[in-house]
């Protein structure tokens, strides 16, 4: 093998590993998510059997709009109506408020109206994301090619 070829090989290897680990990751029902995080259900009790395929955590809604797929859970410490609107635009069905945030009533109302399940957790974002990852849930795939996959 010539030295010039090595970087390409390494890159391919890296891609393969990512795909494999992504395939191995599993989906979780929202009921399982509630158990794993010891979460409180704020709205959408009736949707706990629906399935989350991946998750992302961010307090920046513009980043969420740029990176996130549907069927993803959103973990955030931001508790205002813009989070629910962002979920609406992306067809996200579940938001988890971390760091013990209790969203105001207007947020709960909008979530009920739009059928978004809201959970609240008394843990930091890091720990919440870690627990979900440990339970087998993967992160939302990132990268330009994935962002255009929605087409």
């Amino acid at each position: 093998m010539t030295p010039q070829l090595q970087p390409e090989m390494e890159q391919n290897q890296c891609c393969l590993d990512t795909t494999q680990s992504f395939m191995e990751r599993k989906t979780l029902t929202l009921r399982e998510v509630v158990q794993v995080l010891d979460a409180r259900v704020l709205t959408g009790e009736e949707h706990l059997d629906s399935v989350a395929h991946c998750a992302c955590s961010s307090d920046l809604m513009s980043d969420v709009l740029a990176f996130v797929h549907e069927k993803a859970l959103l973990l955030t410490g931001l508790a205002n109506t813009q989070v629910i609107r962002t979920a609406e635009m992306l067809d996200l069905s579940c938001i988890i408020f971390v760091r013990g945030k209790q969203p105001p009533e207007e947020v709960l109302e909008l979530a009920r109206e739009l059928d978004v399940t809201l959970l609240a957790v008394n843990k930091t974002m890091f720990v919440s994301a870690g627990l979900l990852y440990q339970a087998g849930l993967s992160g939302t795939p990132m990268g330009w090619e994935n962002r255009r996959e929605v087409n």
Binding site: L60, S62, V64, L65, A66, T86, R147, R148
Partner: peptide, 16 residues
Amino acid sequence: RNMGFGAGMGLPNIRR
């Protein structure tokens, strides 16, 4: 920024 915006991602997101 408190609303979760102002990260400088808006116009790039639109263009994308």
